[in-house]
Computed example of a mutant assay.
Amino acid sequence: MRVNLENPNTHQLKQVKVGFSWTTFFFGFWPALFRGDWKWFAIQLAIEIVLGCFTMGIGAGIVGIIFSFFYNKLYINDLLEAGYVPNDKASKDILLSKGITVASH
């Protein structure tokens, strides 16, 4: 399920997936890097390095699996805090149904 978010100042549109992140599941911190989400890229990378060092790499894979369940929600919340708003009623309804607070515009 995807939602459309728009920055009202720049009119930039982003289509963001809601729910489980298959890309994070398979590729760990890389999706955050490609999205330009520097904060969560650095956090995931640091955790994967630390846990990977002590578990011969197994911990890094586990971090990717755990982040898969909530990374998309973290990314959407960061976009909303940066000023993005749902572009249509369907997107707003999806976000509300997933427990994501949406400011009215």
Score class of each variant (00 low, 15 high):
Arg2Ile: 02
Arg2Ala: 10
Asn4Ala: 08
Leu5Lys: 01
Glu6Thr: 15
Asn7Val: 02
Asn9Val: 15
His11Leu: 08
Leu13Gln: 11
Lys14Arg: 13
Lys14Ala: 01
Val16Tyr: 08
Lys17Phe: 00
Val18His: 03
Phe20Gly: 03
Ser21Lys: 13
Ser21Phe: 10
Thr23Gly: 14
Thr23Gln: 04
Thr23Lys: 00
Thr24Trp: 10
Phe25Met: 13
Phe25Asp: 13
Phe27Arg: 00
Phe27Trp: 11
Phe29Trp: 08
Phe29Gln: 04
Trp30Asp: 03
Trp30Phe: 15
Pro31Cys: 10
Arg35Pro: 06
Arg35Thr: 10
Asp37Asn: 15
Asp37Ser: 11
Trp38Ile: 10
Phe41Ser: 08
Gln44Glu: 13
Glu48Val: 00
Ile49Ser: 07
Leu51Asp: 09
Phe54Glu: 06
Thr55Ile: 01
Thr55Gly: 10
Gly57Phe: 01
Gly57Met: 06
Gly64His: 13
Gly64Thr: 01
Ile65Leu: 15
Ile66Val: 14
Phe67Lys: 00
Phe67Asn: 12
Ser68Val: 05
Phe69Ile: 07
Phe70Cys: 01
Phe70Lys: 07
Lys73Cys: 05
Ile76Arg: 11
Ile76Ser: 12
Asn77Phe: 00
Leu79Ser: 04
Leu79Tyr: 07
Glu81Lys: 14
Glu81Pro: 09
Glu81Thr: 15
Gly83Val: 04
Tyr84Asn: 09
Val85Phe: 04
Val85Thr: 07
Ala90Glu: 15
Ser91Thr: 07
Ser91Trp: 03
Lys92Tyr: 00
Asp93Lys: 14
Asp93Thr: 14
Leu96Gly: 08
Leu96Phe: 07
Ser97Val: 05
Ile100Val: 12
Thr101Arg: 13
Val102Asn: 13
Val102Ala: 04
Val102Met: 09
Ala103Asp: 15
Ser104Ala: 11
His105Gly: 09
